[in-house]
């Protein structure tokens, strides 16, 4: 019983990140049916007691499925998961009955406070244990399977003893969580650290993927003048990321796919055009549906 008119389940179609700038157009409906079919919210934006954010979200949830994406749980934190924040997150999930629920492989909270960025962890056995324990704690509290998102990173740690891929596989196996595959993050991290995004994706545990993220990145230079990509979410998805997306769909068939555009938010039509583009790609691989669908989400 969701209490909402719309089904909770997220279809294997394109969705977009919900922005306050677009509430009115989304509520009015009537946009192209080959565009966004669902919306993803950042859980923390709906942790106030009431007011317009909740009023709008209730209306939108009545028309569309939504997914809840946490950005502040700090699953990789040495200080542990904040029980108060976990309880706020559980409340958002209970209130809005999302079809999918996800968080990041990152940390953002320390004794000094909340740092409001997704900070990297070293890939070691001790951190595998910590992150797996935190995910188990979160899945228990929220009462849902969680999808863990692969990070975009700008630095590596001397102390790492395994690759990001080995780390993610190990954590997913131990905590039995699903994975959110952010293909822009794969491209950003692979470029920044000089490995092949294709090889990374070919070895990724795709059976666990319950959702895909596509977003835009900015370009900078590192200390040696080499290309450094920044996960900025401030523009269209780049062409090489679309190519990698096709590579993944060719293997596992369509999956719920989110367009992330969080900064320099465009007009609704421009954002929805990205969703339509993702739907066209998804349709190409529609006949593969059923292949590789296993235990995700």
């Amino acid at each position: 019983m969701s209490g909402f008119a719309s089904d909770a389940r997220i279809p294997s179609r394109a969705g977009v990140g919900l922005k306050a700038e677009h509430y009115a157009e989304i509520e009015a409906g009537g946009f192209e049916t080959d565009g966004a079919a669902w919306f993803e919210i950042h859980a923390e934006n709906y942790m106030g007691d009431g007011g317009p954010p909740h009023a709008h979200l209730r209306k939108i949830r009545d028309q569309f499925p939504i997914s809840v994406h946490g950005v502040g749980l700090s699953i990789g934190a040495e200080v542990g998961v904040d029980p108060e924040h976990l309880s706020r997150l559980s409340k958002v999930v209970a209130n809005y009955q999302p079809g999918l629920f996800s968080e990041h492989l990152a940390w953002s909270t320390h004794e000094t406070g909340f740092l409001n960025d997704l900070l990297p962890v070293p890939y070691t056995e001790a951190v595998v244990q910590r992150v797996s324990a935190h995910i188990a704690q979160v899945q228990d509290a929220v009462g849902r399977r969680m999808l863990l998102e692969n990070p975009s990173t700008y630095v590596r740690f001397e102390t790492s003893t395994m690759s990001e891929l080995e780390f993610l596989k190990e954590v997913a196996d131990r905590s039995d969580c699903g994975l959110l595959l952010d293909i822009n993050n794969v491209f950003v991290s692979a470029t920044n650290h000089g490995y092949s995004p294709e090889e990374y994706l070919d070895a990724f545990p795709l059976k666990r993927v319950g959702e895909i993220h596509l977003g835009g990145h900015a370009e900078d230079e590192d200390d040696l003048g080499d290309r450094l990509l920044i996960d900025a979410h401030d523009r269209e998805v780049a062409d090489p990321v679309w190519t990698l997306y096709e590579r993944v769909l060719a293997t596992i068939g369509p999956r719920p796919t989110l367009i992330e555009w969080d900064n320099d938010v465009p007009a609704w039509a421009e954002l929805d055009a990205e969703a339509r583009r993702a739907n066209r790609v998804l349709d190409k691989y529609r006949d593969l549906a059923g292949r590789g669908h296993a235990d995700a989400a």
Binding site: V155, R156, F157, N192, D222
Partner: peptide, 16 residues
């Protein structure tokens, strides 16, 4: 504990 890049401290990377 950050890995050096080509023997260099990754200042610009950390600055991101």
């Amino acid at each position: 504990d950050l890995a050096h890049i080509g023997g260099v401290v990754p200042r610009k990377r950390f600055n991101v």
